[in-house]
Structure formats: structure tokens, C-alpha cells
């Protein structure tokens, strides 16, 4: 028997799938000597370029651009690291104990230790394992990323009701998706949402770590990355 026809995806989920950014490459500078400074420089440069992409992506979330410019800024300033990490996590799902910072920049435990990123490696891998166990799908990942942005608990939101409305529409899209695709597990939407505290915790660690690298002043950082880092501390 052919499988029963799948319900069409919710409009929001299909829109988010289309809005998903292209693959990004780290392209380490071949003129830099190998070592921890080079690795961190590569990661900070990658993060800076990804931030530009994330800002463009946010504007494609249905309803985001209707928020005030101030609220758009506040959400991004709160959630950018969660979104960066969630993307690394999703790219790393097909791998075993490796983090795919970019298609051409995959770090294992040894490489992470050498660059002083072992702690962060462990935390992100913990998230990867959670999502692997859930067998998270691309549709769920794109929706969760948008939910993380609107659920960033910024203290500077001007129009709380408008942000709540946007959050509700994304939450509803996730529930509708699960209701159609995962009827076998009525708790699935909840299980996915319950991964967000670990994401928040991991992002906070990452921000602290990169902020201390910034203070040490040995690694060059681009302006947008610095601006977003400073907005978090």
C-alpha cells in the first residue's frame, strides 16, 4: 500500500524552509600560522559573516519585520548566539563527536582542546546528542530557530504583546507540524521546546568565553561580532 499522503506543511514552516540561509564556509586564512589564534580568528570571522546572514534571515520570519526596529534589535541582540549554536548543532547531526562550525571547518575533541574550546565543545555536543535522540527534522529545526529568536527574554522589549503574538504564531506552527507529522508522539513539540534551556545555557557559556577572548585582545574580531558581543554583557 502506498503511504498515506502527507498533510501539506503549514505556511509558516514552508516559508521558514525557503528562508533558510545558504551553506557558509570558514575559509581559514592560509597566511596565518597554525595554532589557537588562527582557529579562534577563523571562528570569529565566521561568526561575523553568519551574523549578517542571520539578520537577513530574521527579516524573512513571517511577522518579524512588522515589529518595531527597536524590538527587532533587542531580540537579535539577545538570541544571536543561540541561533549560531543551533545552526552548528544541526549541521553536526550527521557526524560522530565532531562539530561542524562550517562545511569546511569541522572540529573534533582534540582540535577543540588545542583551541581552548573543550568546554564549549562538550556543551554543544550535549545538545547535538539531545537532537540526535529526537531525530530532529529540518522543518522542526527551522521553526525552533525562529522560536528561539522570539523567546529570547530580552528585558528591553517595547511591545511585549506584539512579540508574544509572533511567538504564539511560531509555537502554533510547530504544534500544527507535529500534529500532522508525528501523531505517534503527542509530546514531541514539548520535547523540542524543552531543549531550549540547554541551548540558552550553552549560548551564555559561549558568549562569556568569546567575551574573555575579546578582553585578552589577541584575536582580531570584526565590528558586528564585537557589537553583538558587547550587547550581551
Amino acid at each position: 500500500l502506498p503511504p498515506p499522503p502527507k498533510k501539506p506543511l503549514t505556511k509558516i514552516v514552508s516559508h521558514l524552509l525557503v528562508a533558510e540561509p545558504e551553506k557558509i564556509y570558514a575559509m581559514p586564512d592560509p597566511s596565518l600560522p597554525e595554532g589557537d589564534i588562527k582557529a579562534l580568528t577563523t571562528l570569529c570571522d565566521l561568526a561575523d559573516r553568519e551574523l549578517v546572514v542571520i539578520i537577513g534571515w530574521a527579516k524573512h520570519i513571517p511577522g518579524f519585520s512588522s515589529l518595531s526596529l527597536g524590538d527587532q534589535m533587542s531580540l537579535l541582540q539577545s538570541a544571536w548566539m543561540e541561533i549560531l549554536i543551533l545552526s552548528v548543532v544541526f549541521r553536526s547531526l550527521p557526524y560522530e563527536d565532531e562539530l561542524v562550525y562550517a562545511e569546511d571547518y569541522v572540529m573534533d575533541e582534540g582540535h577543540s582542546r588545542l583551541t581552548g574550546l573543550l568546554d564549549l565543545y562538550g556543551s554543544i555536543l550535549h545538545l547535538v546528542r539531545r537532537y540526535k535522540k529526537l531525530k530532529v527534522e529540518k522543518e522542526e529545526f527551522v521553526t525552533l530557530k525562529a522560536i528561539a529568536l522570539t523567546n529570547s527574554d530580552s528585558m528591553h522589549i517595547e511591545d511585549v504583546e506584539a512579540v508574544q503574538k509572533l511567538q504564539d504564531s511560531l509555537h502554533e506552527a510547530l504544534q500544527e507540524y507535529e500534529g500532522g507529522e508525528h501523531q505517534e508522539d503527542p509530546q514531541r513539540a514539548g520535547k523540542l521546546l524543552m531543549t531550549l534551556p540547554l541551548l540558552r545555557q550553552t549560548a551564555a557559556k559561549a558568549v562569556q568565553h568569546f567575551y574573555s577572548i575579546k578582553v585578552q585582545g589577541k584575536v582580531p574580531m570584526h565590528k558586528l561580532f564585537l557589537e553583538m558581543l558587547e550587547a550581551k554583557v
Binding site: V18, A19, I55, K59, F64, S65, M73, L76, L224, E227
Partner: peptide, 20 residues
């Protein structure tokens, strides 16, 4: 907001949602 110039500029300038 002066402190967050680049974010402000990118939000105002980058592609509009109707481009999709």
C-alpha cells in the same frame, strides 16, 4: 542605539521580506 550602529543599519537595509 548609537552603540549598535551595524545591526541597526543591516536591519534597515538588507533585503526586504517580499524578495522571497
Amino acid at each position: 542605539k548609537e552603540k549598535h550602529k551595524i545591526l541597526h543599519r543591516l536591519l534597515q537595509n538588507s533585503t526586504s521580506p517580499v524578495d522571497l
